[in-house]
Design a protein around this nucleic acid. Structure first.
Lengths: 214, 214
DNA sequence: TCCATCATGTAAGGTGTTACATGATTGC
DNA sequence: GCAATCATGTAACACCTTACATGATGGA
């Protein structure tokens, strides 16, 4: 065990200038509510957080190990009879502190990446039909996202809720995201309608085999 | 001209299963409109694309090199008198093809990452005052984004525009993004108002250690 | 029998960010 | 004199994704 006396990270860790560490903070946040396994955390992502952050198992398990190595979380193996054992993680006091620091820091507003918009931006270089297809597919995806959110919302609000105060902000985020989705749906619909019109109006001579309203 | 019969890359390139290559495609898209230098491309990002994609110089210049190495773009050095020379890139026919393929592919809808929402989600574990601060800062950031978009919009639409068809979709994306921003502003304002009320209503007494629910 | 769920991971490789390096010209 | 603009890059490293590996239980 090399260099154990130095409390692990403080001595030669030095927080690289490059680290954003959002995933770590999210995991700390989840563990702040209750002890969880890697599996639980993955489910939390898929059920509640996926629409604005996500992570694969590989990232989750390795991050948990790193956090434990740094003393921010600790684990305990819960032996089970008819299923694989669970490795249950919980925050240490240090982890609690780190979480509080993160919650108080302002989040730097970094641009978000959106491949759909990036592609749409260049659609002037291809045909309107293709652009229309992208818009329609995007519309479907937005509807699916909204549906998923509402589906999960029910499973959430039916149970009495362990800590109503925690739930409040979770619902706020949900509302925020839902509102954004609805706005996106509206703009997308408007764009689809406009494109439909344009395409119908400009090609009275049949191109391939598309039919249109008399 | 080495290995021309094999169309260049097919032979030993093999496209790793892991590659999304969005940045490359965006650069191809920009060069599809007109020849550009790395510097021009960076400006295009900052001016037009930054709200849904961005890249640092390092990524741009290395990607341009990679693209040239693969034969999708070619460059020519333009000598200048009183400034550094410009290395002007343009699409090759191959690059044109790759761009068209990308424009036709459906964009997989991947979740977007939003550190602000992630943090807000956990704000039940800290004080309402801190949450309020985050919301206010976020509101300011949203307004700044909108302002920037409108500022750029003017410089754009004043000039007669080289190719109006290209501009159309660029304006659509802008409209889309602006609409989203306005929706976000509205939800944020609503949340701020609610929080203000709550905070005002619940603490006629001291601030320090709150804890109670009558 | 086949598939989904529970549960924990490793390996490989692409993507993105920050910091650093250079250097002339123009405007305040 | 100082800062911004023009212009091109490299190095280091953190972050994220995909694919792969394992194995029992319980239901259709």
């Amino acid at each position: 065990m090399p260099g154990r006396r130095l409390t692990g990270k403080d001595a030669y860790h030095e927080e690289p200038p490059n680290a954003r560490n959002t995933l770590r903070s999210i995991i700390l946040g989840l563990l702040g509510a209750r002890p969880m396994t890697g599996y639980d955390i993955k489910q939390a992502f898929d059920r509640a957080i996926a629409s604005y952050w996500n992570a694969g198992n590989s990232q989750i398990y390795t991050t948990l190990k790193a956090l434990e190595h740094e003393g921010l979380v600790e684990s305990e193996v819960v032996i089970q009879q008819h299923r694989p054992n669970r490795k249950l993680y919980r925050l240490t006091p240090q982890g609690q502190v780190e979480l509080e620091v993160w919650l108080q820091e302002s989040a730097p507003e970094r641009f978000t990446k959106d491949e759909f918009l990036a592609k749409l931006f260049f659609c002037g270089q291809t045909s309107d039909e293709i652009a229309l297809r992208h818009l329609i597919e995007h519309h479907q995806a937005l509807e699916a996202q909204l549906a998923h959110m509402e589906w999960v919302l029910q499973r959430y609000t039916q149970r009495p809720a362990r800590r109503p105060h925690l739930l409040e902000y979770q619902l706020l985020v949900r509302e925020y995201k839902a509102e954004t989705l609805r706005a996106d749906l509206t703009v997308t619909e408007r764009a689809i309608a406009r494109l439909h019109e344009r395409i119908a109006g400009q090609q009275p001579s049949g191109v391939a085999e598309r039919e249109r309203e008399p």
